[in-house]
């Protein structure tokens, strides 16, 4: 009676729909807004590159803007925002190891 999702998939239905999933969807409006924000933040980075002397403060500003852009790409372009919390944490939490590594490198290179 109750058909397993795999059977349904072989009959040519969308696997995600066969499992009764709501497929994440983003509107064109949202996509364009994210694109414009990414382009603007890149432009702001250029302003800082020429208007500010290189140094620790500028490096921190660049890194913050970069993480902001990365978050925009992951959350909206890659639809991470619409995925389940479980998938989100499975992918993002291991990246904390990188944060740890970067922190170590910063500490060690400060002499």
């Amino acid at each position: 009676m109750s058909q397993s999702p795999h059977d349904m998939v072989h009959e040519g239905e969308y696997e995600a729909e066969a499992y009764g999933l709501h497929v994440p969807h983003s509107s064109k409006r949202e996509i364009w807004i994210v694109f414009v924000v990414l382009a603007l933040v890149t432009a702001i980075e250029f302003v800082f590159a020429f208007a500010m002397q290189s140094g620790t403060e500028r490096t921190i500003i660049f890194l913050l803007l970069t993480v902001f852009k990365a978050a925009g790409i992951v959350l909206y372009f890659m639809h991470m925002k619409h995925e389940t919390k479980r998938l989100m944490y499975s992918v993002l939490l291991p990246m904390l190891l990188v944060v740890y590594l970067v922190a170590l490198v910063i500490i060690e290179t400060q002499g």
Partner: peptide, 16 residues
């Protein structure tokens, strides 16, 4: 019967 991470196998594997 349910997808553990709420996404299809192919997409989960791409994420990993």
């Amino acid at each position: 019967r349910r997808l553990a991470l709420g996404a299809t196998y192919g997409k989960v594997m791409m994420w990993f």
